[in-house]
């Protein structure tokens, strides 16, 4: 019997009494890609931070199904367990790759860091795995010893993805992964992401304001406005036939070329 990988139960987060997100509930199943869309300030990023335990929800809880089959409330885990989960079972792709990468060390070390964090102590194997992952995200082999400072924006973002996926996480959080990139680079990155998600069977929660990204990557969609979920459903269904007035506005305001 399969169970949801992650379940959000009435997540509410207030900042100074002001609502950032309110009573958000959903279930994420293994292998599912969930897009959270909405305009700036609609609470998408706060929701993502609550789910990944970077900020504590004011109310509500997040249930997570661990590798050993136990289902736990994330808030009940000790900090050590939470950090271990972060390093192994989860990935977090930031909008700005500088936040997710260690800019002072080479690309290879960036990819290898998580391996070393979980106890890998064989240089040759770490390097082999790093090379393999660089190839998977289409970074040339001879760039392995370069610092990400010398990488382009698109390459940095791909490196960040490789760094996150190297420990075979089951759940990846993405916060506007294509945010700072120009359109052609975005398209390539999305293509790559879609391939990786499909082949690895990843579960993804992706926050974006770009409906095209949601359409390409996600299976299900959550539309947020002013901290509340106003519409949810299969991505194609919601985007083809939006029910809520705000979603209709959002869909119709996409520029057509």
């Amino acid at each position: 019997m399969t169970r949801p990988l992650l379940a959000a139960d009435n997540i509410t987060r207030l900042y100074d009494g002001r609502v950032a997100c309110e009573r958000v509930s959903f279930e994420l199943w293994p292998g599912e890609v969930l897009a959270v869309v909405g305009e700036s300030g609609s609470g998408k990023t706060t929701l993502l931070k609550c789910l990944s335990m970077q900020v504590a929800p004011t109310a509500g809880r997040v249930l997570y199904s661990l590798r050993d089959g136990r289902t736990v409330a994330l808030a009940d885990l000790s900090e050590a367990e939470r950090r271990f989960l972060m390093r192994t079972d989860w990935g977090f792709v930031h909008q700005d790759p500088r936040e997710g990468l260690r800019m002072g060390v080479s690309a290879g070390a960036n990819v290898g860091e998580r391996l070393m964090a979980v106890g890998e102590r064989h240089y040759g194997r770490i390097r082999g795995t790093a090379l393999d992952w660089l190839a998977r995200v289409e970074i040339a082999e001879d760039r392995i010893d370069d610092s990400p400072r010398h990488y382009s924006g698109g390459m940095r973002q791909r490196l960040q993805i490789a760094r996150n996926l190297v420990t075979a996480p089951r759940l990846v959080f993405m916060d506007e992964p294509t945010g700072g990139l120009d359109v052609s680079v975005q398209a390539r990155l999305l293509d790559l992401l879609r391939g990786l998600v499909r082949t690895l069977g990843l579960s993804v929660i992706i926050v974006t304001h770009d409906l095209a990204v949601a359409r390409l990557l996600s299976t299900r969609i959550l539309v947020m406005q002013q901290g509340k979920v106003i519409e949810t459903g299969l991505t194609d269904q919601v985007l083809e036939d939006p029910q809520a007035p705000y979603t209709q506005l959002l869909v119709s305001s996409v520029l057509q070329v």
């Binding site: 900090e79 050590a80 950090r83 260690r102 060390v105 080479s106 290879g108 070390a109 290898g112 860091e113 998580r114 070393m116 964090a117 979980v118 106890g119 102590r121 240089y123 770490i126 390097r127 392995i144 010893d145």
Partner: peptide
């Protein structure tokens, strides 16, 4: 301090990795 408390020392090997790579 947190890394010491939780014995998260993987990063120390990142430095040694960099040495060997360079």
């Amino acid at each position: 301090r947190k890394m010491h408390a939780l014995e998260e020392y993987g990063i120390m090997h990142v430095k040694l990795y960099e040495d060997i790579a360079r």
